[in-house]
Protein backbone atom coordinates (compact mmCIF):
# COMPACT_ATOMS: atom_id res chain seq x y z
CA UNK A 1 0.00 0.00 0.00
CA UNK A 2 1.18 3.45 -0.85
CA UNK A 3 1.80 5.35 2.36
CA UNK A 4 2.60 8.86 3.47
CA UNK A 5 6.11 9.88 4.44
CA UNK A 6 6.55 10.76 8.09
CA UNK A 7 5.86 14.35 9.14
CA UNK A 8 5.02 16.37 12.19
CA UNK A 9 1.44 17.47 12.40
CA UNK A 10 -0.36 20.47 13.80
CA UNK A 11 -4.01 21.40 13.66
CA UNK A 12 -4.49 25.01 14.76
CA UNK A 13 -7.96 26.34 15.42
CA UNK A 14 -7.39 29.90 14.20
CA UNK A 15 -5.92 31.60 11.17
CA UNK A 16 -3.53 33.44 13.45
CA UNK A 17 -2.18 30.25 14.87
CA UNK A 18 -1.84 28.75 11.39
CA UNK A 19 0.05 31.74 10.02
CA UNK A 20 2.30 31.78 13.05
CA UNK A 21 3.23 28.13 12.49
CA UNK A 22 3.86 28.76 8.81
CA UNK A 23 5.98 31.76 9.68
CA UNK A 24 8.03 29.87 12.27
CA UNK A 25 8.72 26.83 10.13
CA UNK A 26 9.61 28.78 7.03
CA UNK A 27 9.52 26.70 3.86
CA UNK A 28 9.52 23.44 5.76
CA UNK A 29 5.80 23.45 6.55
CA UNK A 30 2.90 22.83 4.22
CA UNK A 31 -0.78 23.59 4.62
CA UNK A 32 -3.31 20.81 4.46
CA UNK A 33 -6.90 21.67 3.63
CA UNK A 34 -8.99 18.94 1.98
CA UNK A 35 -5.91 16.93 1.16
CA UNK A 36 -7.11 15.70 -2.21
CA UNK A 37 -4.13 17.30 -3.93
CA UNK A 38 -1.54 17.40 -1.16
CA UNK A 39 -1.91 13.86 0.14
CA UNK A 40 -1.29 12.19 -3.25
CA UNK A 41 1.71 14.42 -3.86
CA UNK A 42 3.12 13.56 -0.45
CA UNK A 43 2.56 9.88 -1.15
CA UNK A 44 4.45 10.29 -4.39
CA UNK A 45 7.23 12.04 -2.44
CA UNK A 46 6.84 15.15 -4.55
CA UNK A 47 7.09 17.18 -1.36
CA UNK A 48 8.64 16.16 1.92
CA UNK A 49 7.52 18.75 4.48
CA UNK A 50 8.75 18.55 8.04
CA UNK A 51 5.46 19.86 9.31
CA UNK A 52 1.95 19.55 7.95
CA UNK A 53 -0.42 22.19 9.23
CA UNK A 54 -3.97 20.98 8.92
CA UNK A 55 -6.56 23.71 8.66
CA UNK A 56 -9.60 21.55 9.29
CA UNK A 57 -10.21 23.03 12.73
CA UNK A 58 -10.19 26.64 11.51
CA UNK A 59 -13.95 27.01 11.40
CA UNK A 60 -13.69 30.69 10.49
CA UNK A 61 -12.38 29.67 7.07
CA UNK A 62 -15.43 27.57 6.27
CA UNK A 63 -18.77 28.68 4.83
CA UNK A 64 -20.33 31.37 2.69
CA UNK A 65 -21.30 34.79 3.96
CA UNK A 66 -22.51 38.04 2.49
CA UNK A 67 -20.64 41.28 3.01
CA UNK A 68 -21.21 44.63 1.30
CA UNK A 69 -23.35 43.07 -1.41
CA UNK A 70 -20.71 40.50 -2.18
CA UNK A 71 -20.58 36.81 -1.46
CA UNK A 72 -17.50 35.79 0.48
CA UNK A 73 -16.54 32.14 0.46
CA UNK A 74 -14.24 30.72 3.10
CA UNK A 75 -11.29 29.01 1.45
CA UNK A 76 -11.98 25.87 3.44
CA UNK A 77 -15.52 25.53 2.10
CA UNK A 78 -15.85 22.18 0.39
CA UNK A 79 -16.32 22.11 -3.35
CA UNK A 80 -19.54 20.25 -2.80
CA UNK A 81 -20.79 23.04 -0.55
CA UNK A 82 -19.82 25.64 -3.15
CA UNK A 83 -21.61 23.68 -5.88
CA UNK A 84 -24.74 23.31 -3.78
CA UNK A 85 -24.93 26.76 -2.20
CA UNK A 86 -28.22 28.44 -3.18
CA UNK A 87 -26.83 31.97 -3.37
CA UNK A 88 -23.85 30.88 -5.45
CA UNK A 89 -26.06 28.86 -7.75
CA UNK A 90 -28.39 31.82 -8.16
CA UNK A 91 -25.82 34.55 -8.74
CA UNK A 92 -22.78 32.73 -10.08
CA UNK A 93 -23.97 29.50 -11.67
CA UNK A 94 -20.71 29.18 -13.60
CA UNK A 95 -18.81 28.88 -10.33
CA UNK A 96 -21.26 26.28 -9.01
CA UNK A 97 -20.91 24.39 -12.26
CA UNK A 98 -17.14 24.51 -12.14
CA UNK A 99 -17.07 23.26 -8.56
CA UNK A 100 -19.54 20.50 -9.38
CA UNK A 101 -17.34 19.32 -12.26
CA UNK A 102 -14.26 18.70 -10.17
CA UNK A 103 -13.07 15.15 -9.54
CA UNK A 104 -15.65 12.90 -7.99
CA UNK A 105 -18.35 13.22 -5.31
CA UNK A 106 -15.90 12.02 -2.66
CA UNK A 107 -13.22 14.45 -3.80
CA UNK A 108 -15.71 17.32 -3.75
CA UNK A 109 -16.76 16.45 -0.21
CA UNK A 110 -13.16 16.57 0.89
CA UNK A 111 -11.62 19.10 -1.48
CA UNK A 112 -11.92 22.80 -0.78
CA UNK A 113 -12.32 25.89 -2.90
CA UNK A 114 -8.99 27.22 -1.65
CA UNK A 115 -7.30 23.93 -2.44
CA UNK A 116 -8.65 23.92 -5.95
CA UNK A 117 -7.45 27.48 -6.53
CA UNK A 118 -3.96 26.65 -5.30
CA UNK A 119 -3.90 23.21 -6.94
CA UNK A 120 -0.41 22.12 -7.86
CA UNK A 121 0.31 22.18 -11.59
CA UNK A 122 0.11 18.78 -13.23
CA UNK A 123 2.19 16.86 -15.73
CA UNK A 124 2.14 13.16 -16.60
CA UNK A 125 5.91 13.00 -16.29
CA UNK A 126 5.82 14.53 -12.83
CA UNK A 127 2.72 12.89 -11.38
CA UNK A 128 4.27 9.49 -10.89
CA UNK A 129 5.88 7.74 -7.97
CA UNK A 130 9.49 8.68 -7.46
CA UNK A 131 10.77 5.34 -8.82
CA UNK A 132 9.27 6.02 -12.24
CA UNK A 133 9.47 9.79 -12.06
CA UNK A 134 13.22 9.50 -11.87
CA UNK A 135 13.59 6.58 -14.27
CA UNK A 136 15.18 8.03 -17.38
CA UNK A 137 16.17 11.22 -15.60
CA UNK A 138 14.29 13.36 -13.17
CA UNK A 139 12.47 16.45 -14.40
CA UNK A 140 12.99 20.01 -13.19
CA UNK A 141 9.77 20.08 -11.16
CA UNK A 142 11.08 17.02 -9.36
CA UNK A 143 14.75 16.88 -8.40
CA UNK A 144 16.24 17.28 -11.87
CA UNK A 145 17.03 20.12 -14.23
CA UNK A 146 15.46 19.02 -17.51
CA UNK A 147 11.99 19.18 -18.96
CA UNK A 148 10.95 15.94 -20.65
CA UNK A 149 8.02 17.59 -22.41
CA UNK A 150 9.72 20.50 -24.13
CA UNK A 151 13.27 19.38 -24.68
CA UNK A 152 15.77 22.06 -23.90
CA UNK A 153 13.17 24.18 -22.14
CA UNK A 154 14.36 26.48 -19.39
CA UNK A 155 10.97 26.49 -17.72
CA UNK A 156 8.52 23.88 -16.50
CA UNK A 157 5.31 23.45 -18.47
CA UNK A 158 3.18 21.63 -15.93
CA UNK A 159 -0.47 22.52 -16.36
CA UNK A 160 -2.65 24.75 -14.26
CA UNK A 161 -5.56 22.37 -13.75
CA UNK A 162 -7.92 24.28 -11.50
CA UNK A 163 -11.54 24.44 -12.62
CA UNK A 164 -12.54 27.26 -10.34
CA UNK A 165 -9.62 29.54 -11.18
CA UNK A 166 -10.68 30.43 -14.74
CA UNK A 167 -14.23 31.18 -13.62
CA UNK A 168 -13.19 33.25 -10.65
CA UNK A 169 -10.62 35.02 -12.77
CA UNK A 170 -13.22 35.78 -15.41
CA UNK A 171 -15.61 37.09 -12.78
CA UNK A 172 -12.91 39.31 -11.33
CA UNK A 173 -13.06 37.69 -7.90
CA UNK A 174 -10.48 38.49 -5.27
CA UNK A 175 -8.51 36.48 -2.78
CA UNK A 176 -7.78 37.38 0.82
CA UNK A 177 -4.31 36.31 1.85
CA UNK A 178 -3.17 36.38 5.42
CA UNK A 179 0.28 35.90 6.81
CA UNK A 180 1.91 36.45 10.13
CA UNK A 181 1.22 40.10 10.91
CA UNK A 182 0.10 40.95 7.41
CA UNK A 183 -2.89 40.70 5.11
CA UNK A 184 -3.66 41.57 1.50
CA UNK A 185 -6.32 41.16 -1.15
CA UNK A 186 -5.41 40.36 -4.73
CA UNK A 187 -7.42 39.70 -7.88
CA UNK A 188 -7.55 36.02 -8.79
CA UNK A 189 -5.62 36.53 -12.02
CA UNK A 190 -2.76 38.00 -10.07
CA UNK A 191 -2.35 34.80 -8.07
CA UNK A 192 -0.93 32.87 -11.01
CA UNK A 193 2.37 32.83 -12.78
CA UNK A 194 2.91 31.01 -16.06
CA UNK A 195 5.58 28.72 -14.70
CA UNK A 196 4.96 25.10 -13.83
CA UNK A 197 7.15 25.20 -10.75
CA UNK A 198 6.72 28.70 -9.42
CA UNK A 199 3.08 28.84 -10.43
CA UNK A 200 1.71 31.00 -7.63
CA UNK A 201 2.45 34.51 -6.43
CA UNK A 202 1.57 33.37 -2.93
CA UNK A 203 4.18 34.61 -0.48
CA UNK A 204 5.92 32.25 1.92
CA UNK A 205 3.76 31.67 4.97
CA UNK A 206 0.66 33.14 3.39
CA UNK A 207 -2.70 31.49 3.92
CA UNK A 208 -5.55 31.93 1.46
CA UNK A 209 -8.49 32.51 3.75
CA UNK A 210 -11.32 33.86 1.64
CA UNK A 211 -12.58 34.26 -1.88
CA UNK A 212 -14.48 37.50 -2.50
CA UNK A 213 -16.94 37.37 -5.35
CA UNK A 214 -17.80 40.56 -7.25
CA UNK A 215 -20.92 42.53 -6.35
CA UNK A 216 -24.02 40.84 -7.69
CA UNK A 217 -24.95 42.63 -10.90
CA UNK A 218 -21.41 43.19 -12.07
CA UNK A 219 -22.11 40.63 -14.78
CA UNK A 220 -25.33 39.64 -16.50
CA UNK A 221 -24.26 36.14 -17.35
CA UNK A 222 -21.44 33.76 -16.56
CA UNK A 223 -20.43 30.52 -18.19
CA UNK A 224 -18.14 27.58 -17.52
CA UNK A 225 -17.21 24.87 -19.99
CA UNK A 226 -14.89 21.95 -19.44
CA UNK A 227 -13.29 19.58 -21.88
CA UNK A 228 -12.31 16.12 -20.72
CA UNK A 229 -12.91 12.66 -22.05
CA UNK A 230 -14.97 11.32 -19.18
CA UNK A 231 -17.76 12.97 -17.26
CA UNK A 232 -16.07 12.39 -13.92
CA UNK A 233 -12.67 11.92 -12.24
CA UNK A 234 -10.74 13.77 -14.91
CA UNK A 235 -8.91 17.04 -14.61
CA UNK A 236 -9.72 19.52 -17.36
CA UNK A 237 -7.98 19.23 -20.72
CA UNK A 238 -9.29 22.71 -21.25
CA UNK A 239 -11.80 24.85 -19.47
CA UNK A 240 -13.29 28.22 -20.13
CA UNK A 241 -14.64 30.71 -17.64
CA UNK A 242 -16.55 33.61 -19.13
CA UNK A 243 -18.73 36.51 -18.01
CA UNK A 244 -20.53 39.29 -19.84
CA UNK A 245 -22.31 42.55 -19.08
CA UNK A 246 -24.63 43.71 -21.79
CA UNK A 247 -25.40 47.31 -22.61
CA UNK A 248 -28.28 48.64 -24.61
CA UNK A 249 -29.46 46.48 -27.54
CA UNK A 250 -27.53 43.48 -26.18
CA UNK A 251 -24.28 45.15 -27.11
CA UNK A 252 -21.38 43.75 -25.13
CA UNK A 253 -20.45 46.32 -22.55
CA UNK A 254 -17.92 44.22 -20.69
CA UNK A 255 -16.73 40.71 -21.38
CA UNK A 256 -14.17 38.47 -19.81
CA UNK A 257 -12.99 35.09 -21.05
CA UNK A 258 -10.33 33.02 -19.29
CA UNK A 259 -8.91 29.70 -20.48
CA UNK A 260 -7.66 27.07 -18.10
CA UNK A 261 -5.52 23.95 -18.47
CA UNK A 262 -3.71 25.22 -21.55
CA UNK A 263 -0.72 26.69 -19.76
CA UNK A 264 0.86 26.85 -16.35
CA UNK A 265 -1.53 29.64 -15.41
CA UNK A 266 -5.09 30.53 -16.41
CA UNK A 267 -4.95 32.58 -19.59
CA UNK A 268 -7.09 35.71 -19.59
CA UNK A 269 -8.00 36.56 -23.17
CA UNK A 270 -8.35 40.08 -24.56
CA UNK A 271 -12.02 39.40 -25.13
CA UNK A 272 -13.00 43.00 -24.46
CA UNK A 273 -10.79 44.13 -27.31
CA UNK A 274 -12.48 41.82 -29.79
CA UNK A 275 -16.07 41.88 -28.60
CA UNK A 276 -16.51 45.10 -26.58
CA UNK A 277 -19.19 47.25 -28.21
CA UNK A 278 -20.27 44.45 -30.53
CA UNK A 279 -22.95 41.82 -30.60
CA UNK A 280 -21.67 38.69 -28.86
CA UNK A 281 -22.36 36.58 -31.95
CA UNK A 282 -20.61 38.95 -34.33
CA UNK A 283 -19.05 36.35 -36.62
CA UNK A 284 -15.93 38.32 -37.47
CA UNK A 285 -15.26 39.23 -33.85
CA UNK A 286 -15.89 35.68 -32.65
CA UNK A 287 -13.50 34.29 -35.26
CA UNK A 288 -10.88 36.81 -34.20
CA UNK A 289 -11.30 35.86 -30.55
CA UNK A 290 -11.03 32.18 -31.46
CA UNK A 291 -7.78 32.77 -33.31
CA UNK A 292 -6.48 34.84 -30.41
CA UNK A 293 -7.47 32.10 -27.94
CA UNK A 294 -5.66 29.44 -29.95
CA UNK A 295 -2.58 31.64 -29.95
CA UNK A 296 -2.70 32.09 -26.19
CA UNK A 297 -3.15 28.41 -25.49
CA UNK A 298 -0.08 26.19 -25.30
CA UNK A 299 -1.33 22.66 -24.82
CA UNK A 300 1.55 20.21 -24.67
CA UNK A 301 1.84 16.44 -24.55
CA UNK A 302 1.81 16.34 -20.76
CA UNK A 303 -1.76 15.27 -20.12
CA UNK A 304 -4.46 13.14 -21.69
CA UNK A 305 -5.19 13.40 -25.43
CA UNK A 306 -3.16 14.85 -28.26
CA UNK A 307 -2.12 18.44 -27.80
CA UNK A 308 -2.93 19.20 -31.42
CA UNK A 309 -6.52 18.21 -30.81
CA UNK A 310 -6.63 20.15 -27.56
CA UNK A 311 -5.42 23.23 -29.39
CA UNK A 312 -8.20 22.76 -31.91
CA UNK A 313 -10.68 22.45 -29.07
CA UNK A 314 -9.66 25.84 -27.72
CA UNK A 315 -11.38 27.45 -30.68
CA UNK A 316 -14.45 25.24 -30.44
CA UNK A 317 -14.85 25.80 -26.72
CA UNK A 318 -14.23 29.52 -26.92
CA UNK A 319 -17.10 29.82 -29.38
CA UNK A 320 -19.26 27.52 -27.29
CA UNK A 321 -18.61 29.58 -24.19
CA UNK A 322 -19.81 32.71 -25.98
CA UNK A 323 -22.94 30.88 -27.05
CA UNK A 324 -23.48 29.77 -23.48
CA UNK A 325 -23.38 33.41 -22.36
CA UNK A 326 -26.51 34.10 -24.37
CA UNK A 327 -28.17 30.71 -24.06
Amino acid sequence: MLRLPEFEYAAPATVGEATRLMHERGGKAMLLAGGTDLIPSLKRRQYLPELVVSLHKVEAMRGVREADGRLVIGALTSLDAVAAHPAIRASWPALAKAAASIGTPQLRNQGTLGGNLLLDTRCTVYNQLEEWRDAGGSCMKSTGVKCHIVLGSKRCWAISSSDTAPVLAALGAELRLVRHGDERTVPVVAMYRDDGIDYLTLQPGEVLTEVLLPPVGKWDRSAFLKLRRRGTFDFPLLNVGAAVKFGADRIVERISVVLGAVGSAPQALDAQKFLGGKQIDDAVAVAALQAHAAKRATPLPNTDSSHVWRKRMVQVYTARALKELVA
Partner: peptide, 27 residues
Protein backbone atom coordinates in the same frame (compact mmCIF):
# COMPACT_ATOMS: atom_id res chain seq x y z
CA UNK B 1 -12.63 4.34 -26.66
CA UNK B 2 -9.94 4.86 -24.05
CA UNK B 3 -7.52 2.27 -22.88
CA UNK B 4 -3.91 2.32 -24.02
CA UNK B 5 -0.52 1.49 -22.63
CA UNK B 6 1.32 4.46 -23.97
CA UNK B 7 5.02 4.98 -23.40
CA UNK B 8 7.12 8.09 -23.18
CA UNK B 9 10.55 6.73 -23.99
CA UNK B 10 10.88 3.79 -21.63
CA UNK B 11 8.28 4.84 -19.11
CA UNK B 12 4.55 4.45 -19.09
CA UNK B 13 2.77 7.68 -19.72
CA UNK B 14 -0.22 6.89 -17.57
CA UNK B 15 0.50 4.33 -14.86
CA UNK B 16 -2.38 5.50 -12.69
CA UNK B 17 -6.10 4.88 -12.48
CA UNK B 18 -6.69 8.56 -13.19
CA UNK B 19 -4.58 8.80 -16.31
CA UNK B 20 -5.22 5.32 -17.66
CA UNK B 21 -8.77 6.04 -18.75
CA UNK B 22 -11.47 3.47 -18.32
CA UNK B 23 -15.20 3.87 -18.80
CA UNK B 24 -17.05 5.18 -15.75
CA UNK B 25 -20.76 4.94 -15.03
CA UNK B 26 -21.15 8.14 -17.05
CA UNK B 27 -20.01 6.74 -20.38
Amino acid sequence: LFEEMDYRKSRLEAPSMLDYKTITVNE
